[in-house]
Design a protein around this nucleic acid. Structure first.
Lengths: 338, 338
DNA sequence: ATGAAAGCGCTAACAC
DNA sequence: GTGTTAGCGCTTTCAT
């Protein structure tokens, strides 16, 4: 073992001794609990300050709240996610909660471990961002810890809340924008489809795409190009789509995660955007807005999603038990690629 | 309070009862400790499986190890950091450690809170990535928890290890590459300088820049442009540098974080890269390698830094007490901007 | 208003 | 090889 703090750690007992009161009194002061006189409180606070005392979260977790919330991010590479994180932080911070992040690597089993870890760490609540965990499994966990899910459609869930971009509407906005520019052969680039993951955002956007194509009388021209989870990296497949003889002239892409590379590959191939290929992505991530990329995208306002999710979590921790399912209106950010 | 697990949580006692053994026996099985017969182990493992038992990390942290490590990231927006994280994860994962991430927002006080939080959560060790915390303060914390610092030069520290890109050499590579292309007026874009933060990477790269300019006999042509922490966003200042009458023809930029926007602003202004302005960044982040950006950069191999840092942390947790200060050789990734 | 004391779930001596 | 037990630092009744 490395040399630790074992020697002379300041505990609640140290403080109690120093202030000449009981440990219970110190505990009460810490938690602003009932039944402490002003004089006692002052004395205790002075000792805390003087000794630089900090309560052990671990010990606290064995009886009461830890004031720590877990944030589970599907992965750490997606440049859209920081905005969600910042939104969450903005509201939890003012309420005195700390945040702890876990990174799921878009892997179901891995995410489950992370959830368990957070439960085992006695966190007070959990926000799962773009999790891949299927509803029934989520439900089991959510019974153990107050949970809000972001970017995963589970409108009937009762044990947890959800916050989502209205992904179907977002898809419609994108397609209609391309339509307005005169396009009729509008393809969609989507993630591979697995019935287990229907609640994920890509299938939702795909359903929105198919619906609006039908509305526009283009049902028979709808065409979904797929990228697979296992395509690592994706470049080859994207390039294949763009070099095919019947390559599309307009693409709505499920995420900027793929739309940005697509736009770059098009450029490499000498395909002009938007003249030869119009492109609309989703997420409006920071890369999309770089002038050299200039990618039109559907903004789902991650910052707001984060804020709303955090607020929901706090009321749930506060005792609410009826689920809330919140949809946030997306908006189109028109840029040169459109 | 939300409905919790309070009812019928499976604890070590539940398992012990179910298996008909003592809690100590269960604990030993959990930790693969000495002195358990094969028969007993099997019986206990069966009960654990059957009951779905998971040990409470909080409770465990009060006596032994938590097998959880903290990773403190300076911020969550820098696209270079995920590579470091993945490197860390790659080695800790195989050793059975879990990772927990804290986000510092590049704010010293905030980072200090996060460290305390991780100590209070009884994590077994800490990796701080690009922290802004000054050496003496770090030292105080490092005495309480095994610590490795990445991207922060503190070669004399004894209480913690450091892993860094050889930032001076990296700067030299960048400048020499520009020199080889015929440039003589080579400016550097650096972070504002504060003596408290001399250990951060930007000042180190700046010193490397000044040193090599001198070596090349260009000392009097050295010129450092500065961006401030408070420039939020940075665009205005960068634009000002590029529109000034004496704007530089070659820039070595302390990080792709600023080099990418710089390259974009240049394009907006009609300044051709590299013909009118040659550019070399640092970090080789994923955006730099996009074909439309095509930014030359110094690769500091974040993945390797992460791996090395994690390995150092594990040996330190294992008992090593003499500090290691590891420098990783950077390399130039030549791209079109050069 | 204050304090004594009983846990929370676990680990690690130590006894058997 | 196995079990008993004393804490770890805190919260929370319940007396006083």
């Amino acid at each position: 073992m490395a040399d630790g703090d074992s020697e002379n750690r300041v505990t609640i007992r140290t403080v109690a001794a120093d202030a000449g009161v009981s440990v219970a009194a110190v505990s009460k002061v810490m938690r602003n609990a009932y039944g402490v006189s002003e004089a006692l409180r002052l004395r205790v606070e002075a000792s805390i300050e003087k000794l630089g005392y900090r309560p052990s979260i671990a010990a606290r977790g064995m009886r009461g709240q830890t004031f720590t919330l877990g944030v589970l991010l599907v992965d750490i590479d997606n440049p859209f996610l920081p905005s969600v994180y910042h939104g969450i932080e903005e509201v939890t911070e003012t309420k005195g909660y700390k945040l702890m992040v876990g990174v799921g690597k878009a892997h179901e089993r891995r995410e489950a471990q992370l959830i368990e870890q957070m439960i085992d760490n006695r966190m007070d609540g959990l926000i799962m961002v773009a999790s891949h965990i299927p509803g029934p499994v989520m439900d089991r966990y959510a019974r153990q810890i107050p949970t809000v899910v972001v970017g995963h459609h589970e409108p009937l869930a009762e044990s947890f809340d959800t916050v989502n971009s209205d992904d179907r509407t977002g898809a419609q906005m994108a397609v209609r924008a391309l339509y307005a520019k005169g396009h009729r052969d509008i393809a969609m680039l989507a993630m591979e489809w697995d019935p287990r993951y229907e609640a994920d955002v890509s299938p939702q956007r795909e359903q929105g795409y198919l619906a609006v194509m039908k509305e526009l009388g283009l049902a028979d021209r709808a065409r979904v190009l797929r990228v697979l989870q296992s395509d690592q990296p994706r470049e080859d497949r994207l390039r294949a789509y763009l070099t095919a003889p019947d390559r599309p002239r307009a693409i709505f892409c499920w995420s900027d995660l793929d739309a940005v590379p697509l736009r770059n590959i098009a450029w490499q191939l000498g395909i002009r955007v938007p003249e030869d290929l119009a492109l609309v992505g989703y997420d409006n991530n920071p890369v999309a807005s770089l002038p050299l990329i200039d990618l039109a995208s559907i903004d789902q306002d991650g910052h707001r999603m984060g804020r709303v999710a955090a607020e929901a979590l706090l009321t749930r921790i506060g005792g609410r038990s009826v689920a809330e399912h919140i949809l946030i209106e997306p908006r189109l950010i028109p840029r040169r690629s459109l």
